[in-house]
Design a protein around this nucleic acid. Structure first.
Length: 576
RNA sequence: UGGGACGUAGGCAAGCGGUAAGCCUCCGGAUUUUGGUUCCGGCAUGCGCAGGUUCGAAUCCUGCCGUCCCAGCCA
């Protein structure tokens, strides 16, 4: 992956720790893992974890495993496994032949649980869910807060003999007991200040078919038990996870130590938070279920699939991931940084085309009747190897409504009566007038004359023409549908909502604008689905898979930087 | 009145006792057949606050303040 992204000139705290572990001989090599639960699609937050997991392994000559952390039959599905694999591959990470499933370890995990029972470190508990909570001694309200101080109480079943526990656990496995009637718990310390250490549940009884093991098991291991041991089974040296697991680390170490398995080390880092969106499978699932978006791959979603459909290149995403850094500070990354990385990548790789989103007719009065000229246009000024193409020019063109003003605002140097402008790769034209619809008042036609000596846009007399605008020949115009996307949420932090409101209230009402009158130059027919191009002066657009032979649909990936919009806004705020 | 972590610019983030990197944003200016790109320049006498140690502190010590996580038989 070293070729995939530029390395910073310093070591982040994780790499520092790993380097230290190698130096001291704590580990001989580096092995990491990316452990998604197949219960939702991957989002940009997972991409950060992927980048850290695969990146650290790569940097130290190690390997990173892909492991489906599937220990909860209620929510997991093969559909998600496939989606996850596809997205990881697309992002450019390679697990080679190391795809594993926690569900493949059920038997080993069961044996390790028996080992703890034999050592007197685990027991079968008959307490129900409510009682466990009560005995943990945590649910004690104190003024409006919660006090965690009271020590818990031992379960009356805590001192069963290893023989009895072994027998009961075996009978749990074969299905003798009802769902929820018994659990296997680790025997640690019911008075421990860290709640997770108060005899955590290791196994629960759930008669729900698992998407991979079917009905073979009716007991399923909990994360805190399964995770460290799965890591150990795979010989993971560094188990990198997010900050919320910090408090789980003592438990992680307890299981590893007492099961006497490979000593994996857990290191936590801050998960990614991105402005104007939500990064949690739970909330994303809600957006999908409540039909706030069209699906997991809606281009407004921060999912990998959504970004891919939106037109974000994987290289741009990786660049972003490399720039945000790795630390333990809870932070909120500005989505503008992501957009900047996407633009930077696309600027050098996306071919240019001319399109007009909101067309208005431009008639060239002195253009020879019926003449059509094919002009040369550069495909990518940043990349000469991208070549050139031909575009047709005639007496009637379409230009964008925004490129004409009846009365120009300050600093405006596009078309207005009497002003001249360059039609990109075409000719320099001078506006001679315009026509309005008498009833609606809408401008229907703009008139101009062209200078035959300016073919291609060059000014032989060296005159300065400030404005250059894009255009589309009316005769050859290809109708397209442009889907203009904006941030999904208006608020920088969508989850911060006033009492009685939900994050749905923060949804932006202009996150999607469909422009069905848009037109483009004929060459756009060559663009393939999934390909991202630049529509000059507008932005980058990706041809959507929903495109048909009769209508091409383009998703706006990201706009170009718009300095004019800033100038205009400034003058609107305080005109002078 | 518990435990675990974290506080460096508007947003990220280096810095590891020798006098505040870099990136994004923002603001100027140059170049430009995309108001794009590119290029120059500006943006913390200051590192949560208060003391202390030291010739010297963002870095070490003490105390305070603030923020986040922990009450699933979810991961």
């Amino acid at each position: 992956m070293s070729e995939l992204v530029e390395k910073p000139e310093y070591l982040d705290f994780i790499r520092e720790a790993v380097a230290e572990d190698l130096r001291t001989g704590r580990y001989k090599e580096v092995r990491t893992r990316f452990p998604p639960e197949p219960n939702g699609w991957l989002h940009i937050g997972h991409a950060k974890a992927l980048f850290v997991d695969f990146g650290v392994a790569q940097d130290f000559g190690g390997k990173c495993n892909l492991r489906m952390d599937d220990t909860n039959p209620e929510k997991e599905d093969m559909e998600y496994v496939e989606a996850i694999k596809r997205d990881i591959k697309w992002l450019g990470f390679d697990w080679e032949d190391r795809l594993f499933f926690a569900s493949d370890y059920y038997e080993k995990l069961y044996e390790l649980a028996c080992k703890l029972i034999k050592k007197g470190l685990a027991y079968v508990d008959d307490l129900d869910e409510e009682q466990i909570k009560e005995f943990r001694g945590t649910n004690v309200p104190d003024k409006n807060n919660i006090t965690y101080t009271p020590p818990g109480r031992n379960s009356p079943w805590r001192d069963r003999s290893p023989e009895e526990n072994l027998d009961l656990f075996e009978r749990m496995r074969v299905g003798e007991f009802a769902d929820g009637s018994k659990t296997l718990r680790a025997k640690i310390d019911m008075a421990h200040p860290n709640l997770l250490m108060r005899d955590p549940v290791m196994y629960r009884i759930r008669r729900i078919p698992h998407y991979r093991t079917g009905t073979k098991w009716c007991i399923y291991p909990m994360y805190d038990f399964a995770h460290p041991l799965s890591d150990a089974i795979e010989g993971i040296t560094h188990s990198l996870c997010s900050l919320e697991y910090e408090i789980h680390r003592p438990l992680y170490e307890w299981f590893i130590q007492n099961c006497e398995v490979f000593p994996s080390r857990q290191i936590e880092f801050a998960r990614l938070n991105l402005s104007h969106t939500v990064l949690s499978k739970r909330w994303l699932l809600q957006l999908v279920r409540e039909k706030k978006v069209k699906g997991w791959d809606d281009p407004r979603m921060p999912t990998i699939a959504g970004m891919r459909r939106r037109g974000y290149p994987a290289a741009g995403i990786r660049d972003f991931l490399g720039r945000i850094g790795i630390a333990k500070t809870d932070s909120l990354v500005d989505i503008q940084l992501l957009e900047h990385c996407i633009r930077e990548e696309l600027n050098t790789h996306a071919n240019r085309y001319m399109a007009v989103i909101n067309p208005v007719k431009l008639v060239i009065e002195n253009w020879p009747e019926g003449k059509i000229e094919w002009l040369e246009a550069v495909n990518n000024p940043e990349d000469p190897s991208a070549g050139i193409r031909k575009i047709p020019f005639s007496s009637t063109l379409y230009i964008d409504r925004d490129d004409f003003r009846e009365v120009p605002p300050p600093k405006y140097y596009r078309l207005y009566p009497g002003n001249q402008v360059r039609l990109r790769y075409g000719y320099i034209v001078t506006c001679t007038g315009f026509e309005k619809n008498p009833t609606s008042g809408e401008i229907e036609k703009i008139r101009c004359v062209y200078d035959p000596n300016t073919r291609g846009g060059d000014a032989p007399d060296n005159r300065k023409v400030k404005g250059t605008i894009q255009w589309v020949c009316a005769i050859h115009a290809i109708p397209i549908e442009a889907r203009l996307y904006d941030h999904l949420f208006e608020a920088e932090r969508p989850m911060e909502v006033p009492e009685g409101k939900t994050f749905f209230d923060n949804l932006s009402d202009h996150s999607l604008t469909i422009e069905s009158r848009a037109v483009a130059e004929p060459a756009v027919v060559e663009i393939e689905k999934g390909q991202t191009v630049q529509f000059e002066r507008i932005g980058y657009f990706c041809k959507d898979p929903e495109s048909t032979s009769s209508l091409a649909v383009f998703n706006r990936t990201v706009t170009l930087r718009d300095t004019w919009a800033k100038i205009e806004k400034k003058f609107q705020e305080k005109p002078h």
